[in-house]
Design a protein around this nucleic acid. Structure first.
Length: 753
RNA sequence: UGGGGAUUCGCCAAGUGGUAAGGCACUAGCUUUUGGUGCUAGCAUUCACAGGUUCGAAUCCUGUAUCCCCAUCCA
């Protein structure tokens, strides 16, 4: 597990610790209406990962409540995705449709409670009655139907006596709710459609908001984790479970940000468009961010898992850079995969001073990969090298073969160019070269220094293969649609060559073609007669980067500009009474404008302030506490829920004023007061929080702290003045916060200078 | 009558009053018979902005800005 926990794991740990749940049970609940993509992988990692980390378990559940969109083939894809990623889902796959009968019974219960009704308004009218974000909605006239009538109608809906759209079942919540999801949400709709599992048994189907929470409950889920766009649905989730008065423990919903990756699309709709539009070869097209696509391309499950771990979990919408994913697959394959040679765009090289053939022994793995294995590399008079590895008029910094510069053929000899043969168009067709017999790899006595070693093949023994070069599907970072497609996302090279061992020995299904990238024997199209390799990812190429620095990203406008300019928005004006108060606070009581402003505008705060003031005449200190601390407590609480009184606050301020406690301790005391409502003096006494201001007590503690942190002392002396705060903090920590911070500050300052 | 979230380096992301973690990317140098790998170093005086509270603020308070989600009989 990573050393810093994400917010979900923090919640889970707290819930386990508090005994809210005995066991953590999560679920991964996709709708089987499309192929899972890497966003699902993130969700799988979260749900199964949390279950694994806390010895719980995770259900794979198909959220199959909409028969018109769903299909078994997607169920299979989902199952195999979870398996491929290596998570144990047990033998069981759960289906929401397994609960249809139970859900129906819960709906009836809701009707009996008068909390649900059959609505017969048509779709259009229903929409207009729902209101807008700024206006309340109006309840349907059918909402007044009796329980009996609702029960009867709902039963008939189930029996299939009505056509699609004639009636729906709705929860009776609040048509004026600020959260529009709460404006009497639909629970059931009529759908005369064949469901891939329940067939024609049902003519009504539950909606997500009704089915999901209850399925969670039925399965005993503790933590129902979903993406951010369901935040508004959380209120319905809770309403259903609470209204039904279900036995505890019951699940709670928590939301995280879905994954976005640049240069690709992640929505099911857009993915489907690409598949159906024929822009890609299918759901498993290696250019797609689907799990099937990554698998087909040659990604390993480990690399995806690692990626999900690296990107973390948070609540801010984000767009992860593909390079992070690419790093993960390179990092994984680097440790695992044999290195072989492949020439994609061949250039013939004839070694004029060599006759016959020989085999060169070559390790599959470089010195830094601790794996064993080697193969024979045939060497002969006629070779292929990569066209890019020869240049007649090389730019500065070119390390490969040129008329003047010799090069090593990897694992073999050093060669140098003697003659360049061209056709009528000036295209180079062949290089006449010579080799140095005493330069063989491993026993080189030639003394020739060479700048690089290039891949090569013996022309006669080289095996022809098809190589599929994949690039990003879209050419812009945040693609909108087919217009943004990268025209070169797939290049098929039918006549590339690899060394024979790749085909005959098959040491692996994934390879590093040296200096080119990682490749994968296509699991579908590969045959021994016609081998096909997919490019998984290229190697990092710092030469290519150096070559075209033109791609330099335009730096965003410099910060300092926005730095100075204060963003001035509209500030609501004060009422007359508020203005009066404000004036009194600033002139009479000498409060600063900011504090006075906050106080004057808040009715509760100002009256609370007045009360406290009548108990203790310390206008500024009280105002500060009220504005900064008390206001925190009333943020998400009713004023009546406050545990402390204005008098107690006055008492607290008194202790600060007469220096019994420091303001730091005061915060701590205040927290206790807010929790338990005890008197400040009682808390201070019980916890022994009285401030230590005596330098003779504090000084030795400071010496101790300094002695314990020699490296920081050094840094401080070197000019890192921030560390003053560090030392003060340490001293305060050592005294349990009781040392007078002002005194400590002064003393530390003196000692360090 | 609007509500709910979010904002820390180019991209992710820790951090909840006491030294601004980490990864990717980037930049150098060393290593290297892969322009790969590895190693070393550099990369936020500052946390959207502006005030306030405090000895001390990314963290607490107030205000402002920007982005995302919500008015499917989808999930």
């Amino acid at each position: 597990m990573r050393e810093s926990k994400d917010f979900l794991r923090t919640i889970v740990e707290e819930d386990l610790k508090s005994g809210k749940y005995k066991e953590v049970i999560t679920r991964f609940p996709p709708e089987p209406n499309g192929f899972p993509h890497i966003g699902h992988a993130k969700s799988i990692c979260i749900n199964f990962g949390i279950a694994r980390d806390y010895n719980g378990h995770c259900n794979l559940r198909m959220d199959d409540t909409n028969p018109t969109k769903e299909d078994t083939k997607y169920v299979e894809a989902l199952k195999s995705a979870v398996e491929w990623l290596g998570f144990d889902r047990g033998d069981n796959v759960y289906f929401t449709s397994d609960n249809f009968h139970k859900l129906y019974d819960y709906a009836i219960e809701l009707i009996k409670m008068g909390k649900a009704y059959v609505d017969s308004t048509n779709e259009e009218e229903m929409r207009s009655l729902r209101g807008t974000v700024k206006e309340a909605g109006k309840r349907s006239k059918y909402a007044v139907r009796s329980i009996e009538e609702n029960l009867d109608l709902f039963a008939k809906m189930k029996e299939g006596e009505f056509k699609d759209g004639e009636h729906v079942l709705r929860a009776k919540i609040d048509m004026g709710a600020a959260n529009m999801k709460l404006r009497d949400p639909l629970l059931y709709r009529i759908r005369h459609a064949n469901h891939f599992r329940t067939g024609d048994e049902w003519s009504i189907y539950p909606m997500y908001d009704f089915a999901h929470c209850l399925s969670d409950y039925i399965e005993g889920i503790s933590h129902s984790i979903c993406t951010l766009e369901f935040e508004n649905n959380r209120d319905i989730y809770n309403w259903v479970l609470d209204t039904l008065g279900l036995e505890l423990p019951r699940p709670y919903q928590h939301e995280f940000a879905r994954l976005g990756i640049n240069y690709t699309v992640m929505s099911k709709r857009k993915l489907l468009e690409l598949v159906e539009g024929g822009q890609v070869s299918g759901w498993d097209d290696p250019r797609l961010p689907t799990i099937a696509g990554y698998k087909r391309k040659g990604y390993t499950p480990e690399s995806i898992l690692n990626f999900c771990d690296q990107i973390g979990i948070a609540k801010a919408n984000s767009m992860v850079d593909v390079s992070q994913l690419e790093f993960c697959i390179r990092d994984d394959l680097n440790k695992k995969v044999p290195r072989v040679m492949c020439v994609i765009n061949p250039l013939k090289v004839t070694i004029q001073n060599y006759e016959g053939t020989e085999d060169i022994d070559a390790s599959y793995y470089p010195h830094d990969v601790p794996k064993e294995g080697s193969r024979k590399l045939p060497f002969s008079r006629e070779l292929y090298i990569e066209r890019d590895d020869f240049c007649e008029n090389p730019p500065k910094g070119y390390f490969r073969l040129t008329p003047e510069q010799p090069v090593r053929i990897r694992h073999g000899f050093i060669i140098s160019c003697k003659e360049v043969i061209k056709d009528a168009n000036g295209k180079i067709t062949e290089i006449k070269a010579e080799y140095y017999p005493d330069s063989k790899s491993g026993s080189d006595t030639s003394g020739i220094k060479v700048k690089s070693a290039i891949q090569w093949l013996s022309a006669k023994e080289a095996k022809q293969v098809e190589v599929r070069l994949y690039d990003r599907l879209f050419s812009c970072e945040a693609p909108e649609g087919v217009d943004d497609l990268n025209p070169d996302s797939l290049r098929i090279i039918k006549n590339a060559f690899v060394e024979p061992a790749v085909i005959t020995e098959k040491p692996d299904e994934r390879f590093q073609f040296e200096r080119q990238g990682y490749f994968y024997a296509d699991p579908i199209d590969y045959t021994d007669e016609k081998p096909v390799f997919n490019k998984i990812v290229g190697l990092k190429d710092s030469y290519a980067k150096k070559k075209k620095p033109t791609q330099e990203v335009v730096k965003p406008a410099s910060k300092p500009q926005t730095k100075k300019a204060q963003v001035e928005g509209e500030v609501a004006s004060m009422s007359e009474a508020q203005q009066l108060l404000f004036d009194k606070y600033t002139t009479e009581l000498k409060l600063n404008a900011e504090v006075a402003n906050i106080l004057a505008r808040d009715e509760f705060l100002s009256s609370f302030y007045q009360e406290a003031l009548s108990a203790l005449n310390s206008p500024v200190s009280i105002a500060n506490i009220v504005v900064n601390e008390v206001s925190k407590e009333i943020k998400d609480k009713q004023a009546s829920e406050l545990k402390f009184t204005s008098k107690q606050i006055a008492g607290l301020v008194k202790m600060i004023d007469d220096k019994t406690i420091s303001s730091k301790i005061a915060k701590q005391v205040f927290e206790e007061m807010a929790k338990f409502g005890e008197n400040p003096s009682v808390i201070v006494e019980a916890k022994g929080l009285i401030q230590i201001s005596d330098p003779s007590i504090i000084a030795p503690i400071i010496d101790e702290v300094i002695a314990k942190n020699p490296d920081n002392l050094e840094k401080f002396k070197a000019g890192n003045t921030k560390l003053l705060g560090f030392f003060v903090g340490q001293v305060l920590k050592a005294t349990g916060g009781k040392a007078n911070p002002q005194v400590v500050n002064k003393l530390v300052h003196e000692k360090l200078n």
